[in-house]
Write a protein that binds this DNA or RNA. Structure first.
Length: 202
DNA sequence: TTCAAGATTTCCT
DNA sequence: GGAAATCTTGAAA
C-alpha cells in the first residue's frame, strides 16, 4: 500500500528533493480517473542565487508566486506561449526553490494519456518524456498552479519517504535549455535514472 | 509603449 | 537542422 508523501519530505533543499523524487509516483486525478507515472528525470532550481531560476535575484511575479509557497506545493508555469511545466516546490515558505519534473514512466491511465497527446504519439516512451509532454498527458495546466500536493485530491505524489535510489543508479548532468545562465548552465543539477527508456530526448 | 527572449515541442525543408 | 506557435516578463525607449 503506497502512501502519499508527507510535508516533511518536501521541506528540504532542491538538490536533495530532486534526487529523492526519482522513482516516486506522480498521480493526477482527472475526470474521476487516475493518471500516474513514475518520476524518472528531474532538475533542481536553487532560487535567488541561481541565474537559471525564475526567482533569480528575488524576482516575485504573478507567474512565479507559487515558488514562494511552502514545500510540497505545485508550481505550474506557462512557457513559449503554449506549454505548461510542472515543478514541486522545495524548502519552506518564502524560500523560492523548486524541482522541475522532466519525465515520467507512465503506469496508470495510458489510454487517456494517448488521447491527450494526440494521434502523432504512438509509443509509451513518447507520452511523458519531456516537461511539457507530461503536463499535456496528465492534463496539468495553470488551474493546478499553487495546489498543495500534500492535501490535494487532484494532484499528489505517492511513495515512501524511505525509498532511496542508490547513487550508482542516478546520472547527474547539466540542466537543459538554460544555456543563457552563465556559470549556472553547466552545474550538474539534472538527475535521471541511469539507462531509463523514458527520459527526455538528449 | 515596444521589444526580445524564454526551465519546449512539433512540423517542415 | 531550422522555424513557428504566441504568453509572460523585464528592460529599453
Amino acid at each position: 500500500m503506497t502512501a502519499r508523501l508527507p510535508r516533511s519530505f518536501f521541506r528540504r533543499d532542491s538538490v536533495t528533493l530532486a534526487r529523492a523524487l526519482l522513482g516516486q509516483r506522480l498521480v493526477r486525478v482527472h475526470r474521476g480517473q487516475r493518471l500516474a507515472g513514475l518520476i524518472v528525470e528531474t532538475e533542481a532550481y536553487l532560487g535567488v542565487e541561481d541565474r537559471a531560476a525564475h526567482t533569480f535575484g528575488g524576482r516575485r511575479t504573478p507567474r512565479n508566486a507559487a515558488m514562494w509557497l511552502d514545500g510540497g506545493h505545485a508550481y505550474v508555469y506557462f512557457i513559449y506561449g503554449l506549454h505548461f511545466c510542472l515543478n514541486v516546490v522545495a524548502g519552506r515558505a518564502e524560500e523560492p526553490i523548486a524541482v522541475l519534473i522532466r519525465a515520467l514512466e507512465p503506469v496508470e491511465g495510458l489510454p487517456a494519456m494517448f488521447e491527450s497527446r494526440g494521434p502523432r504519439v504512438t509509443r509509451p516512451e513518447q507520452l511523458c518524456s519531456g516537461p511539457a509532454r507530461l503536463c499535456q498527458a496528465l492534463a496539468i495546466d495553470r488551474a493546478l498552479d499553487g495546489v498543495d500536493l500534500v492535501t490535494s485530491q487532484e494532484l499528489f505524489i505517492e511513495g515512501s519517504p524511505r525509498h532511496v535510489v542508490p547513487d550508482a543508479d542516478i546520472v547527474a548532468s547539466a540542466r537543459i535549455g538554460v544555456a543563457y545562465a552563465g556559470d549556472w548552465a553547466d552545474k550538474p543539477l539534472r538527475f535521471h535514472l541511469r539507462g531509463h527508456a523514458h527520459v527526455s530526448r538528449p
